[in-house]
Amino acid sequence: MTDDPMMNALPGSTKQKAGNQLDEQIHLTAVDEFLAWGKENSLFYLLFATACCGIELMQAGGPRYDLDRLGMIPRATPRQSDLMIIAGTITHKMAERVRLIYQQMTEPRWVVSMGSCANSGGPFSKWSYSVLNGIDKYIPVDIYIPGCPPRPEALIDGVYALRERVRRYRTLGVRETVPHIVASADAAFGCHFGKGGSKQPEEPKA
């Protein structure tokens, strides 16, 4: 316990090396802070993907990006998950089901809307008759991640933004409702939707 960086990172920790004295063995902290510390380091997410972003979610959980190191483990049932990542397009037919899944999750629960389709309908918002333009019409969303699809790095960026929010969560407090929009570099150039030009990307001159 003495050299465990996790314990030193405990909220309210004096960051002193714990010794054998009684007062050195005891951390004084608020219950909420202690719970938040646990929650933010073990955000179990629901293994739920509808469309293209689902592949990026899978690859984010894969060996290279490895969401496990953030304490994020996929769970197959909403009953065991804290976080729902809406990865992909939600159609009118699907939306009711998404709400049903969301309602099965236990509080505190968080929702990350991953990709343009879940945010606002994305490329399908203009001409599609069956796509719901934004899942936030059905369930409250905490974090929006732009991109079509967002890179795993953008997803991880969103997860860090969510961890901030989890840290601020108070059991008896008022739930934050203002959504957070991740403004990652991906939003600027990650989505080259509809560009379709014939220009060659510039090569760095050696």
């Binding site: 009118h92 939306a95 009711e96 606002s120 309908g121 918002s125 008759y129 719901l132 333009n133 934004g134 019409k137 059905y138």
Partner: peptide, 8 residues
């Protein structure tokens, strides 16, 4: 559709 407007 089912009371949810299609457009934002």
């Amino acid at each position: 559709y089912h009371g949810v407007p299609h457009l934002r």
